[in-house]
């Protein structure tokens, strides 16, 4: 019984150590999840390479959550963050060097498909006032999408007290999609890929987050990690990102 237990623990531990086939672990900001899923498939099938059997694991979560995990000892091969501050934490902690800008993402204000507070059709001059009265979801200031939304509100002179501050942009989107809020600050890529309406708020599209990617110092598979980053920066990689609404770096 106990031997069986110890045996199964050992098995679980062994399973975590990987098998013979090469593998790559990628930590990416949650806004990258759909695009990176496609990118990874294209990377495995890239013409002129033999990557059949390559196992790529994608961990998509809030950039800050991932960064904390890496600083606390997680060992992915590649990390892609949704802003520079978060990437700086990794570099400052000595976990990686020289991250590369690989794409950018615009801030967008979206409403549920039925626009309960009539924000899409609002007169541009009334919009700021209506937004003050509306219930709004956004990311918390600790995470990239929240920093960007806060900056935009400050620069555009919007008075917004959010109904909820989520720890990643996907949660904000879910609050909008389920109709729990009148509107939410997300990225343009999230707006494009889900069933929401975009509010045309003047000046909002000038707020853009740079996305950086880096190979971790302790990558288990540094050569493959670099190949993946090169692929993301390559023409086919950039085309996939563009298709999901990301801006050229």
């Amino acid at each position: 019984m106990l031997l069986g237990l110890i045996g199964s623990i050992a098995l679980i531990a062994l399973a975590g150590c990987g098998s013979d086939s090469p593998s790559l672990t990628i930590d990416a900001a949650s806004s990258l999840e759909p695009a990176f899923t496609e990118l990874i498939e294209a990377f495995i099938d890239e013409p002129g390479t033999d990557r059949a059997g390559l196992i790529v694991e994608l961990n998509a979560a809030g950039s800050s959550t991932l960064a904390t995990g890496i600083i606390e000892g997680n060992r992915p091969d590649v990390f892609a963050a949704a802003d520079r501050d978060t990437m700086d934490r990794i570099v400052d902690a000595g976990r990686a060097e020289a991250p590369v800008l690989f794409t950018r993402n615009r801030l967008a204000l979206v409403t549920p498909s039925d626009d309960p507070a009539d924000l899409v059709t609002a007169d541009p001059s009334d919009l700021p006032g209506q937004l003050t009265a509306a219930s709004i979801a956004q990311c918390s200031p600790q995470v990239p999408c929240g920093r960007l939304a806060g900056e935009a509100q400050k620069m555009l002179g919007l008075q917004i007290e959010p109904a909820t501050e989520e720890t990643n942009v996907r949660s904000v989107l879910s609050k909008v999609e389920t109709g729990e809020v009148d509107a939410g600050f997300v990225y343009l890529t999230d707006a494009i890929t889900s069933d929401v309406q975009i509010i045309d708020l003047e000046g909002l599209d000038t707020f853009v987050n740079p996305y950086l990617i880096v190979r971790l110092e302790e990558a288990a598979n540094p050569a493959l990690a670099q190949e993946f980053i090169d692929f993301v920066l390559s023409m086919p990689g950039q085309e996939i990102l563009a298709r999901w609404g990301f801006l050229a770096p």
């Binding site: 918390s140 959010p162 109904a163 909820t164 501050e165 989520e166 720890t167 609050k175 729990e180």
Partner: peptide, 8 residues
């Protein structure tokens, strides 16, 4: 939700 002073 996650709102400072209200639900956090």
């Amino acid at each position: 939700g996650n709102r400072a002073g209200k639900t956090r």
